[in-house]
Amino acid sequence: MEYRFVHHWNYVLREDEHRILESAISLTSQPRDESFLRLAAEFIATHAQVQYVLIGSLSEDGRNVLTKVFLKDREVLPNISYPLQHSPCDSVLTQRFCYYPNNVQRHFPRDIELQELNIESYLGSIFLTKEGEPVGLVALMSDKQIENAAFAEHLVLVLSPAIEEELILQSNPAL
């Protein structure tokens, strides 16, 4: 399979990217409510300049993703549930992070949603509990190559701890 681990790239942030990451840190330090995941997804979509962003939790059996927020062009779509098998999201769970710069549909011909959405490029990262167990994932997708995947990865990594906390809280409201 052709995917790249972006975090192995030697990438130096530009000054404007540093400011965006500082804004991301500020977003995570604000009081949170049920809109936080949507705000985080919108922030990612805007600054990573991607067409689709989804943040999802894993089903109890770990075979499906249940979206908590799903955006297309920064507009909220209805939440969905989809199987991990035969999807790039399954690779995220095994690799923890992956990036398919182009032709992602060719690599996952059984993933009908990729075809229906006309996805060309995919970047995904896993969310983990403090014990290191997968709790969910984020997927950035576009009908063209993601322009700055290395920065998109930095952005996701900065937001990940807060998103992980929120996913854990939503799956265990008693906490």
Score class of each variant (00 low, 15 high):
42 E>S: 13
143 D>P: 01
92 V>S: 05
129 T>I: 03
118 N>K: 13
100 Y>N: 02
10 N>Q: 13
61 D>C: 08
172 N>M: 08
26 S>W: 12
72 K>F: 12
64 N>H: 15
166 E>W: 01
12 V>C: 09
90 D>W: 11
48 A>D: 01
83 P>E: 15
37 L>E: 09
101 P>E: 12
120 E>Y: 08
157 L>A: 15
56 G>N: 11
100 Y>C: 04
106 R>N: 09
42 E>T: 12
138 V>N: 03
92 V>L: 08
25 I>N: 06
173 P>G: 11
53 V>P: 03
24 A>H: 09
117 L>G: 00
131 E>F: 03
145 Q>W: 00
81 S>E: 15
106 R>L: 12
158 V>F: 12
58 L>C: 02
19 R>G: 02
14 R>W: 01
6 V>T: 09
116 E>D: 10
69 V>L: 02
113 E>D: 10
24 A>Y: 11
158 V>G: 01
93 L>Q: 05
139 A>Q: 10
73 D>G: 07
61 D>H: 11
54 L>F: 14
74 R>V: 11
64 N>C: 10
35 S>N: 13
159 L>E: 06
146 I>D: 01
84 L>A: 05
33 D>P: 00
103 N>D: 14
150 A>P: 00
138 V>P: 01
71 L>P: 12
42 E>H: 07
15 E>I: 01
9 W>P: 00
87 S>D: 07
8 H>S: 07
24 A>V: 13
143 D>I: 00
127 F>E: 07
72 K>R: 14
103 N>W: 02
135 V>S: 10
113 E>A: 14
133 E>R: 15
30 Q>T: 03
153 E>S: 10
116 E>W: 06
36 F>W: 04
70 F>N: 15
14 R>H: 04
80 I>A: 02
9 W>T: 07
62 G>W: 10
23 S>Q: 12
155 L>P: 01
63 R>F: 05
92 V>P: 02
2 E>D: 03
164 E>D: 04
8 H>L: 14
91 S>Q: 06
44 I>K: 10
14 R>D: 05
28 T>C: 15
169 L>K: 14
47 H>Y: 15
171 S>K: 12
142 S>D: 11
108 F>M: 09
74 R>A: 12
110 R>E: 10
143 D>L: 02
101 P>S: 06
164 E>L: 04
138 V>R: 00
106 R>H: 13
142 S>C: 01
154 H>I: 03
132 G>Q: 05
53 V>Y: 11
51 Q>I: 01
149 A>D: 12
60 E>Q: 14
35 S>W: 04
156 V>P: 03
108 F>N: 08
89 C>H: 04
152 A>W: 09
139 A>D: 14
79 N>G: 09
133 E>G: 06
26 S>C: 04
42 E>P: 02
12 V>R: 15
170 Q>M: 11
68 K>Y: 02
7 H>P: 05
153 E>C: 06
27 L>F: 07
72 K>G: 05
111 D>P: 04
24 A>L: 10
95 Q>S: 03
34 E>S: 12
31 P>S: 11
99 Y>H: 13
28 T>S: 15
10 N>T: 09
100 Y>R: 01
174 A>E: 13
10 N>A: 06
121 S>I: 05
28 T>Q: 11
159 L>H: 00
113 E>M: 14
26 S>E: 14
52 Y>R: 15
